[in-house]
Structures are given as C-alpha cells and as structure tokens.
Amino acid sequence: MTNAAWETLGNQAVAAAGLAYFIALLVHLAEWAALRQPAAREAALVGETRGLENDALVEEVALQPSRDLGRRTASERVAFLGRLGFLVTCIAAAAHLVAMVGRGMAADPNRVPWGNMYEFTVSGTFVVTLMYLVLHRRFRLDWMAPIVVGFVLTILMVAVIWLHEPVQPLMESLNSYWLVIHVVSAVIATGAFTLGGIASIMYLVKMRAGEGSTTKGGWLRRVPGLDTLDKLAYRVHAFAFPVWTFAVLITGPIWAHEAWSRYWNWDPKEVWAFITWVVYACYLHARATAGWKGRNAAILALVGLATLWFNFIGINYFSSTSQHSYAIEGPELVQRTTVLE
C-alpha cells in the first residue's frame, strides 16, 4: 500500500470509528431510557419500599422473568441493549485502532502515530475506550458506557474538525525511541486519568443528588454507591499515577537531555506536567487524610485532570516559549555579544 492509501485508510477509519461510537451512544441512551420504565413500574408496585437504593436489589427486581412469555420484558431489553452497545463500542475501538495504524504507516519513514495534537488526541481517546473495555467486567462499568462513549465521540469530533493535519514526517527532535516510550506512557496515563476523572465526577454528582435520589429511578441509580465510586476512582488513579511518573519524570527528562541538553528546563510544558503530578500526589495524600477523604479528594482529582488537559491543549496554543509545542520547532535564536576590536 502506498503512503497516500494508508493516510486515506486512516481518515476513513476515524470516520468509521466516529460513526460506530455514535451508534453505540444511541444504543446506550436507549438502554437508559428503557431503564426508566421498569423502574417506575416497579416503584409503583413496591410502593413505599426503601430497599431500592441497593444496587443488588434493583438488579434482582429488574431481572425477574416476565410472566407473559414471548415478549421481551423491559429489563431484558435493558440487558440486551447494554450488551449491544458494548459490542458496538468494541467495533468502534477496532476502527479506532486501524485509524492509528493508518496514520503511523502513512508517514515516511513509518512512525508512531503521535507527532502532533491530532494524533495525540486520537491515541489518547483510544486509550480511554480501551481502558473502559478492559475494566468493564472487572469493575462493572455498565453505568459508565454512555458517558465514556459520548466523551470519546465528542473529543474525536473536535480532533477531526479542528486539529486534523495531513501526515508529516516527525521533526528531528521528536525522532527518538525515547519519544515512543515517553508518549506511549503519557497517552496511557492521560487516558487512565480521564477515566478516573469520570468516576470522580460521578462521585460528586451522586453526592450532590444525595443517595436518596436513587429511588426516583433514572440513570443515577445505575451508578454505583459513593464508596464503590471512590474505590474505583482510586484504583484507576493509582494505576495512572506511576505511569505518569514514568512518563514525565523518567522518560521525559531522558529524552529532553538527549534532544536539548537539559533534562529539566522548567519549560511551560514541563512545569504543567509537574503541576499535574503534584496535584495527583495531593489526591493520593488526601485519600489518607482525615477530613480530606471523599469529596475533597474527588475535587483534587478533577483539578489534576484540568491541569492535565490544560497542559495538552492550553500550552500548545497559548505558549510560544514552549519547546514542546508541536506546532513549530523554532530555530535557536541567540544573542551573541562580543567585543569588537
């Protein structure tokens, strides 16, 4: 295949992935909509019962087989739509992967697909999806489906509309295998932090709504309890933090040393990577500090996420001094003073 063909494939695969994510989103929304009905009917049946807050109970009630055979009950439909949505998301992820491979193969020489913001975004969102799919069973993430899919779809659209650039060879300083390791780990950590951030947001939303809101039906009651959310968020963050440490404090400096002669230069990109790191360290501390657990920790996690994304988006656009800006690699401008005799 020619490079142009690979590039076309990459672009088409992004479109296909976007379409599949969109379908998955619709399916999951239908699932949520279907969820309201049995809940409402069941609530009417059970009357004043307060036990519905309990996830297990909800499941149990929802899974009771229907009496009138032949027709699918609402709860079966929910389960079916959930599975269907998951399957479509898997297909979307596959197309997403093809899109990344296509980008990499289109470049001459072939390279990893994260030479600019468009490619970084496509890769980062892929990691979000991948982590969601991998953790789906283990952490029972059904409730997260529409949020994750909707998020990935939105970001992909932003990437395609505003960030898209034709495939280019890597600029010299990015052409290093340290780049590969550095960016792979940064992308993985970014995806994981984002997923953890979603859990933290849901923690705050659920806390705001109060656990009592769960009896009213609607999607919030599919969201697990505060304790579960907190633990989920912690586990995902606890995975992402060491990866981030590896990316920005080990491979980043090694690469910087080779490319620019300074392993740590307080360049704006580095400053913000450091800030992100410190804020997430705060989050981990907060979880072990009385009075900071729970809500404050969740807020810190979101502050961390904000710094992370600001670093990625903001610094590239607003900072002209960053050597990391993917946009240009400015030639060295130097002030030279000499005594003229």
Binding site: W266, V271, V278, C282, I315
Partner: peptide, 25 residues
C-alpha cells in the same frame, strides 16, 4: 497536603512569565 498544593500553585507563574533560565531573549 497544603504545602504540596502551594508548590503546584507556585509553579504556575513560571509558565506564564518568561524565565531567564529558559529563554533570556
């Protein structure tokens, strides 16, 4: 915890104002 947060805050100005050690020009 508070010191860590302060450290993060204190690092911000250096990314907004040009730094002599980074870019003297």
């Amino acid at each position: 915890l508070v010191l860590l947060l302060l450290l993060a805050l204190a690092a911000i100005p250096g990314s907004v104002v040009p730094q002599a050690g980074v870019d003297a020009i």
